[in-house]
């Protein structure tokens, strides 16, 4: 059953039908995907303006604009799936993970590495790039393991240990391969690769994906978004810290203490994103 419609707002959805003709309200049965026993009440069905075979269904019940629904047309025996478009989901997840729910400033994860390598701009960029790439690979690998090994065998309880293993192996492997293939690259990024194992974000991403039972693209979006968000946080922090290093900060606040205060002010600014619908 492929996707043939989308939710427009809280009370309207748009469906492209297979055949012509306007179905009656009694002829349609709307349910939430995964919960086919409770029909949602339909108030009105109308043709969409300037589109063939497309109808606008008005519902009495409030719809979730990000939810997925099924519509059954009893006269033709046809099922229609109503879901948000994949690209929309991926973009919104990417933005959410990178900015709105930035792992560092709103979930307070990965702080040890964040404070450790944000002292200089160059190291921050190096760490950010390396982390984004490795985090993306580990997210992908963990998703495959979760979907095709852990779930079929009902081994959920092993999630944490398996994901730690995946991350550790991946990091070691990247380090070894880079050392053999590209000495210069290893010299530049080798130190960060090892540090990645101590970053909690890299473990949080597969765990979040497993908890939400995310699909392939959604998992990739979260993995990439978290990496980009971490890189952004590191970069902004390093610029600010380079400036604070030149300032006459009170002696007892030099170094890490002022970095903690800076991070707190960053988090205060990122509060503005709270409640943002993406």
């Amino acid at each position: 059953m492929s996707r043939s419609g989308a939710v427009i707002d809280a009370h309207h959805l748009e469906v492209t039908l297979v055949g012509p003709g306007l179905p009656s309200v009694a002829d349609l049965r709307l349910t939430t995907t995964g919960d086919p026993d409770i029909p949602l009440e339909i108030a009105e069905v109308l043709f969409a303006p300037e589109k063939t075979n497309t109808v606008i269904v008005t519902t009495a019940t409030t719809l979730d604009t990000k939810g997925s629904y099924q519509l059954f047309h009893q006269a033709t025996g046809q099922w229609y799936a109503i879901a948000p478009s994949l690209i929309g989901i991926v973009i919104s997840l990417l933005l959410a993970a990178a900015l709105v729910q930035n792992f560092v400033f709103t979930r307070y994860l990965g702080l040890c590495v964040f404070f450790g390598v944000s002292r200089k701009r160059d190291t921050a960029i190096g760490m950010g790039v390396t982390f984004t790439i490795v985090g993306f690979c580990s997210g992908l690998l963990a998703w495959v393991l979760d979907r095709y090994v852990l779930r079929p065998l009902s081994l959920h309880f092993l999630e944490i240990i398996v994901f730690i293993g995946v991350v550790a192996c991946l990091v070691q492997m990247t380090d070894t391969i880079m050392k053999k293939l590209h000495r210069t690259l290893h010299k530049k990024f080798g130190i960060y690769v090892v540090l990645i194992t101590t970053n909690c974000i890299i473990l949080a991403v597969p765990l979040l994906n497993a908890m939400n039972a995310s699909g392939f693209w959604e998992s990739l979006a979260l993995a990439l978004g978290s990496g980009l968000g971490f890189a952004l946080a590191l970069f902004l922090m390093s610029c600010a810290r380079e400036r604070a290093d030149l300032a006459p900060v009170p002696l007892i606040f030099r170094g890490l203490p002022i970095a903690f205060i800076l991070a707190g002010l960053f988090a205060l600014a990122f509060l503005g994103f709270s409640g943002l619908q993406v």
Binding site: L236, F266, G272, S274, L276
Partner: peptide, 24 residues
């Protein structure tokens, strides 16, 4: 923030966020 965010007015947070980008 005004249209899609959780707060009615966003200029305070918007200025703070872009303040964070000023050193860059």
């Amino acid at each position: 923030i005004r249209i899609w965010g959780g707060y009615p007015e966003g200029i305070c947070y918007a200025i703070l966020m872009v303040n964070a980008v000023t050193p860059a």
